[in-house]
């Protein structure tokens, strides 16, 4: 079991309020991602759940039990750190065994569990090495191994993939998702990368300046962003926003159109916006066009990779009328 509830959790460092007031319910077995720009309080929130920081006020319940003041060692959670935080003076085997040794399990049980974890994570042949003799991906696996052996109520991941190169990151992303499907243990995963959030999460918490902007499934967030911040943060490339008279036509303070929701033509169409291609980024499968559209400024358009445009081409953009997001003056979705 591993349900986690935060009730009116507040955290200040001195006079600085990092998290004003957050309430969240994370169900047992869920994969929840905290995502947001740097400094949004997502890591602090994770550390509050871990018990590495204490709350200024509010309650943290694990499986319905109040753990607000319990030290990290007593919470039964496991954490994978951004730096992996492996013990450099211990072999891989001792690293993985450490939480079991702290739990004072008998030696045979420890050996058995460590061997099992090592096999699951393909670490069996590295058990006697020191962490510094391992590659980044292997270190990451050791950190995960150390977390899974103790069968925690929940796993906490603090930007675990940010030190890996791009190719390895995709691999590890899949491995962690698979691990979740296998273990069905609650996982909370902190990242600033919205692609990781979209691909891994059952539900995503979008944080901004310590506030929960929206909590929902990835597609919910994509299709029905609660506000302009979420709309801009989720989706890549990011949504284009238009204010003023054009927005007023839609009875809104501002409107947003995702790069993929345009029809692009070389001749004017009814209701189209006229623009000039500034940069064309050709990825093969897609082409991202950065188009200078009169008073609206620079807009990003996603188009088929087969089409070729170049700097200076005149183009006409027609937003898909059914997929225009409307926002009021406070940025709330209409």
């Amino acid at each position: 079991m591993g349900s986690i509830s935060l009730e009116h959790v507040n955290k200040s460092f001195g006079d600085v309020q990092v998290i004003p007031d957050i309430s969240l319910d994370i169900k047992d077995g869920e994969f929840v991602v905290f995502v947001g720009p740097s400094g949004c309080g997502k890591s602090t929130l994770l550390r509050l759940i871990a018990g590495l920081e204490d709350t200024s006020s509010g309650t943290i319940l694990l499986d319905g039990v109040d753990m607000t003041d319990a030290p990290p060692a007593r919470r039964g959670l496991a954490m994978v750190f951004q730096s992996y935080a492996l013990y450099p003076h211990m072999s891989v085997r001792d690293n993985i065994a450490f939480p079991l040794k702290m739990a004072k399990l008998p030696k045979e049980v420890i050996d058995q569990k460590v061997d099992y974890a090592a096999r699951t994570l393909n670490l069996s042949s590295y058990l006697d090495r020191r962490p510094r003799a391992l590659s980044g991906g292997q270190r990451q696996r050791v950190a995960i191994g150390r977390a899974i052996v103790r069968e925690p109520k929940a796993f906490l991941f603090d930007e675990p993939l940010s030190n890996l190169d791009a190719a390895l990151r995709v691999n590890m992303r899949l491995e962690i998702t698979e691990l979740h499907q296998q273990l069905k243990t609650t996982m909370i995963y902190v990242t600033h990368d919205q692609v990781e959030a979209m691909t891994m999460a059952d539900r995503i918490v979008v944080l901004n300046a310590g506030n929960v902007e929206q909590f929902g499934s990835p597609l919910d967030l994509y299709k029905k962003p609660a506000n302009r911040f979420v709309a801009g943060f989720i989706g890549s490339p990011r949504m284009n926003f238009v204010d003023g008279a054009e927005a007023a036509k839609y009875d809104a303070h501002s409107i947003g159109v995702r790069p993929e929701h345009f029809v692009l033509t070389r001749i004017p169409a009814p209701g189209s916006w006229e623009g000039v291609v500034s940069v064309a980024e050709q990825l093969g499968s897609d082409t991202f066009l950065h188009v200078q559209v009169g008073e609206f400024g620079l807009m990003t358009i996603r188009t088929d990779g087969e089409e070729t445009f170049s700097h200076g081409d005149d183009v006409y953009l027609t937003p898909d009328a059914t997929r225009i997001y409307r926002f009021d003056a406070d940025g709330k979705a209409l």
Partner: peptide, 26 residues
Amino acid sequence: PVDILEAARMDGAELWNEIVHVLVPM
């Protein structure tokens, strides 16, 4: 790095174990 001591805390080490098994050897 303080991360490593925090990892020990998450792994269930009380202060004594944190100092004896992690800090001092490092």
